[in-house]
């Protein structure tokens, strides 16, 4: 699905950082360094980014049944 709006554990908003994170990691930067830059400090928030798979962009293109 889409990137969660908030961290599951601590509730800090993280959704707004996702696009920059994605752009910079795809450009070849180290994910850990990018998270440090974005100010994502705790490991509960960091795993939200590192473990996220953006599946919805692909599912979206299948035809809807109902």
């Amino acid at each position: 699905m889409m990137i969660p709006v908030r961290c599951f554990t601590c509730g800090a908003p993280i959704g707004h950082l996702w696009e920059e994170f994605k752009k910079r990691v795809e450009a070849g930067e180290n994910p850990g360094k990018v998270l440090d830059d974005l100010g994502v400090k705790r490991y509960c928030c960091r795993r939200m980014f590192l473990s996220h798979v953006e599946i919805s962009c692909e599912v979206l293109n299948f035809p809807k049944v109902s």
């Binding site: 990137i3 908003p13 959704g15 707004h16 696009e19 962009c57 293109n61």
Partner: peptide
């Protein structure tokens, strides 16, 4: 994005404008 929300009160608006809400094909 959350920034696309149009609020009826300018004092109450999303803190962050870049939170993705939905994807549309």
């Amino acid at each position: 994005y959350s920034g696309d929300l149009k609020s009826s009160d300018p004092d109450v608006r999303p803190v962050y404008d870049k939170i993705p809400i939905v994807l549309l094909a």
